[in-house]
Design a protein around this nucleic acid. Structure first.
Length: 599
RNA sequence: GGUCCGGUAGCUCAGUUGGAUAGAGCAUCAGCCUUCUAAGCUGAGGGUCAUUGGUUCGAAUCCAAUCCGGAUCACCA
């Protein structure tokens, strides 16, 4: 249990004993960290009790303060400032805490339990390479899965690949027309990029045909429908659905190129998946669910045979589930996939990492499953995130304004190289080590940049300004970590030395403010990790880690570790920085960010 | 128009179930490297927390209305 929680309980107990017969709701007990301008570590707010107790805040504060100091043994003293009871925790508490936890590599994690959670993320289309917007999705999904794992859940990372449909056929048609048999091998172009190039070529050709037809006198809507290349594409989709051998083998070949490209990108991004779902396998699922829904009477059928659900009672509209010809629409297959996932893994929870433009869709999906009575409905959680936009607006592949993911990685690594060389920090590294370092810094900066903001907020990325390596960045945290490692190296100490190294510690000397601030923060890590899991918000870990690194830097500036005033002080400080580095590594590891020992 | 999300320093963002004088980073300015890594530290300036009203000991936080921005409301995916 965290210290803040312990204090809350102690306060509850104090109120019960001091004022028997008066029911004070535990929710009115607020315990905060004491503001730096006052003495104390944690603060109990007294105002909520005034009315019921009919006493002045300061009087109540004295009674509670006295009780807490005497009965709990946790506190060295208290202080009351205008309605706030500031409690100072005994130094012994902190030294005990450090001795118990400073080298615990699993500090902050929760014990494994049986809750099964799937996190679906990435979920790309196979007609173009990944872009900057996908990166936010991918980092978020990966980080969330890792955070949930650290919270003790059994996690399945899943990827649902959009491998069929009209957009895929567009690339295929364009390839047939213009490629003259080109392959990734022959051109040296990464497979997903090659296919993406033909997707762009399709749109160019299509635009030209539409322009020609409108020039010939057709109105635009008709021209868009009648363009030969579009008709050809629709015909191809029909053939694909009919299982046409030629189309299928082209489809398999081109998707194969894309997968190879994606695999490379995923590997560089440092993310992985436990289960791949393909829409070509799942797009026909869901019809049965709709039939069941019809039988139960929760869905209805129109005269033309189309099937609908009435969601007006939930403040939404009527929604189509099956076309008049009996074919399914997008949401129908999602209904089926939801059930499939549930059955595959007996999920307690199914997290979808999907942009906020699909909020409505996800709401509808969950509602329909609930109406049909599918048990998978309750576990569905939409981790909705804001889209990444450019200063000029949304990225549009048709307008060529997308920031490519592979390019972005290259640029970040180049930036890391440039800045490292500029700072003159390349000495003592082999070329191989340097390359690894640039990758660590560049990729870390990229991930942190996309994870540090509350997911639900949209973000604007300006490629011209690129990404900073100063201030609220992964680099800052990496630097703090490298500094700590440097000290430990000089002390001849491993990153996580055994407890026996520090048994001599005593607490005769008071813990100094800069030390205290750090230890206080270290103690709060489990609560932060828990909050990140409960709120589905990895950005909490970014904020916390940055704060921790900041506290360390100030501490480092103010106090010497290796030349501490006494051996006891030195031990205390070593434990503090060892644990700081440990937590930074732990938190960043969950986000997929590596911390170098030297930089 | 309906539903949902957002509006906090010049810019990008924090701000725990309502708590003390609203905090960081970037940018600007002024300091700090014969001492464990200056990718750092210390300090200064910078705010009508979109607006108005309400709830109360106390509101950036909760409620209502209004304004602004975005998403969405297809027999597309």
């Amino acid at each position: 249990m965290t210290l803040a929680a312990q204090i809350r309980l102690a306060a509850e107990d104090a109120l019960k004993h001091l004022y028997p017969g008066i029911e004070i709701s535990p929710s009115s007990i607020t315990v905060n960290q004491t503001k730096p301008e006052f003495t104390g570590d944690y603060t109990l707010v007294l105002f909520p009790f005034v009315k019921q107790l009919r006493k002045k805040p300061d009087e109540i504060g004295n009674e509670i303060g006295k009780y807490l100091v005497e009965k709990t043994g946790l506190f060295a003293g208290y202080d009351i400032v205008s309605g706030f009871l500031n409690l100072t925790v005994k130094d012994a508490y902190w030294t005990n805490f450090l001795l118990n936890q400073f080298n615990n590599p699993h500090y902050g994690e929760k014990a494994k339990h049986d809750r099964r959670i799937m996190v679906e993320y990435s979920s790309p289309n196979t007609n173009k390479p990944l872009h900057f917007g996908h990166l936010r999705n991918i980092f978020l999904g990966y980080a969330m899965a890792e955070v949930l794992k650290a919270s003790g859940n059994q996690v399945v990372k899943a990827n649902l690949i959009n491998d069929r449909g009209i957009h895929i056929c567009k690339s295929m048609i364009a390839w047939q027309h213009f490629a003259e048999g080109d392959t990734p091998e022959r051109t040296g172009i990464k497979g997903d990029h090659l296919v993406g190039d033909y997707y762009v070529k399709f749109n160019d050709a299509y635009k030209q045909e539409v322009a020609r037809l409108t020039a010939e006198g057709l109105d635009e809507a008709t021209a868009e429908k009648e363009a030969p290349i579009m008709k050809e594409t629709q015909e191809m989709l029909r053939k694909w659905e009919a299982g046409d051998k030629e189309v299928r083998s082209l489809w398999e070949m081109m998707n194969g190129w894309v997968y190879k490209g994606f695999d490379e990108s995923y590997k560089r991004l440092g993310v992985d998946f436990d289960k791949m779902y393909y829409e070509s396998d799942t797009y026909l699922l869901g019809k049965k669910l709709v039939e069941q829904g019809l039988q139960k009477g929760v869905l209805y059928q129109k005269e033309d045979g189309s099937v609908w659900v009435d969601l007006t009672a939930d403040g939404l509209d009527h929604k189509l589930l099956l076309r008049g010809d009996g074919t399914s629409v997008y949401i129908t297959q999602d209904l089926g996939t939801a059930k499939l996932k549930y059955n595959d893994y007996k999920l307690d929870q199914s997290v979808y990492v999907i942009a906020d433009e699909q909020n409505y869709h996800m709401q509808v999906l969950k509602l329909i499953l609930k109406k049909i009575g599918e048990p998978c409905a309750d576990g569905i959680y939409h981790l909705s995130y804001g889209m990444v936009e450019l200063p000029t607006g949304r990225m549009k592949s048709r307008e060529g304004t997308v920031v490519d993911a592979d390019d972005m990685m290259d640029e970040m690594i180049a930036l890391a190289k440039e800045q490292t060389e500029q700072a003159g920090k390349t000495e003592g590294f082999s070329q191989e080590e340097l390359d690894k370092l640039y990758e660590t810094i560049g990729m870390g900066a990229l991930k942190f940049y996309l994870l540090r903001v509350d997911p639900k907020k949209k973000m604007i990325f300006d490629p011209k300004e690129s990404i900073d390596l100063h201030g609220f960045t992964a680099t800052f945290i990496q630097y703090a970590h490298a500094r700590i490692c440097s000290i430990l190296r000089k002390e001849g100490m491993p990153l996580l030395p055994p407890n026996t190294k520090f048994q001599a510690l005593c607490c005769k000397e008071p813990i100094l403010p800069a030390e205290k601030k750090l230890v206080l923060a270290l103690e709060q890590y489990p609560a932060i990790l828990e909050a990140a899991a409960e709120e589905y918000n990895p950005s909490l870990l970014c904020n916390y880690s940055f704060q921790l690194a900041q506290l360390f830097n100030s501490f480092y500036d103010e106090h010497s570790i290796s030349k501490a005033e006494s051996p006891e002080k030195k031990e205390l400080r070593l434990m503090i920085i060892i644990m700081t580095a440990q937590i930074l590594r732990h938190a960043m590891h969950l986000l997929g960010i590596r911390l170098p020992e030297k930089m």
